[in-house]
Design a protein around this nucleic acid. Structure first.
Lengths: 172, 172
DNA sequence: AACAATAATGTTACATTATAACATTACATA
DNA sequence: TATGTAATGTTATAATGTAACATTATTGTT
């Protein structure tokens, strides 16, 4: 019996649900640090503007709207306009530092920019928080199913809505 | 060894990729017929406006934009405005006759309104066509993974972009 | 240091997608 | 036929996103 080594990919928890009370300052700092390092290594410029937008995206684990970012950005940077935000978000998305949640038209930070990975998002209807997986089983199964009808995948979007453990517990 | 009968759900192809040349009139007619029957059974009103919007969504297997529908609707129904279209789409979506592709802000017809089902959409970047599965394996795996961290799913959005068999063949 | 080329940001305008709110008309049924 | 409800009409505006061109900052080269 053979083992398919190609399929021996890891299932990762990119970003788990965090307790309502956690030291979020640490999440933010870790994200900025990772972003700086990522850009450093690749010779990319995490300009003050881009960093500020990234910080605003990371103000919580809830997806943030572009125009929400714009409102906050304006407070310290009066020349901001929609393109200011969308360009920064484009850059951050290209670098895997931010993902767009298509079903919400909103953006979340990603703590693992180093490598391209699959993403599965779980969005809690109660607290609004998002968890992100890079689950090779899910991604692999979808690819397998696609291959059955000759479909070659470029990009997978998986956005799951429901209720996280903590919110379910607190409703009892 | 036990068998989990709960998981014995069927994997369905709700809407496969169709050959570029197929008798699309048949798809359209079947969809309208199914919609009429669906509404009949439930005592819902598939008004001329709603039926017309459904027909416009079914003009092809490519997702259609709301304002595209509006433009076409106006040609035979000059009083149409955005709410005209969005209301009809809301009704059709509630009945499972139409799905929204979130990543495209566009709408596709569904040939299987009878029961609520999971949906996995496969969108070809070349021809623009969409295929829809109701795959219990994918849906089940996602639910299983979610249960590992206590997440209770309300709704799954799976939208896969890539290249369909026919388009891949014709590019060789 | 001066220059040119490129990247990033500023600025204005507008395109696209969607909804709120209230008026009117059509339909179901008592 | 009256009456309540559902559907549609109508106007206005909110929310999301992009095009196009000007200006400024940065990088790499003489």
């Amino acid at each position: 019996m053979s083992v398919n080594y190609n399929s021996m990919k890891k299932n990762k928890i990119i970003n788990p649900f965090k307790p309502a009370k956690h030291k979020h300052q640490d999440c933010l700092q870790a994200a900025i640090k990772a972003a700086k390092q990522h850009c450093d290594v690749l010779g990319l410029r995490l300009t003050p503007l881009r960093q500020r937008v990234l910080e605003l995206v990371w103000q919580s684990h809830e997806p943030v709207k572009a125009y929400g970012i714009l409102d906050e950005l304006k407070q310290g940077h009066s020349s901001s306009a929609p393109p200011t935000v969308y360009r920064a978000l484009d850059f951050l998305q290209e670098q895997g530092l931010v993902h767009k949640i298509e079903s919400l038209n909103a953006y979340v930070g990603c703590g693992d920019p180093k490598e391209h990975h699959s993403s599965q998002f779980f969005i809690c209807h109660d607290c609004g928080s998002v968890a992100e997986l890079d689950d090779a089983d899910i991604s692999g199964l979808i690819q397998k199913k696609a291959s059955h009808f000759g479909f070659k995948i470029d990009n997978e979007m998986v956005e799951i809505k429901g209720h996280c453990q903590e919110c379910r517990d607190s409703r009892k």
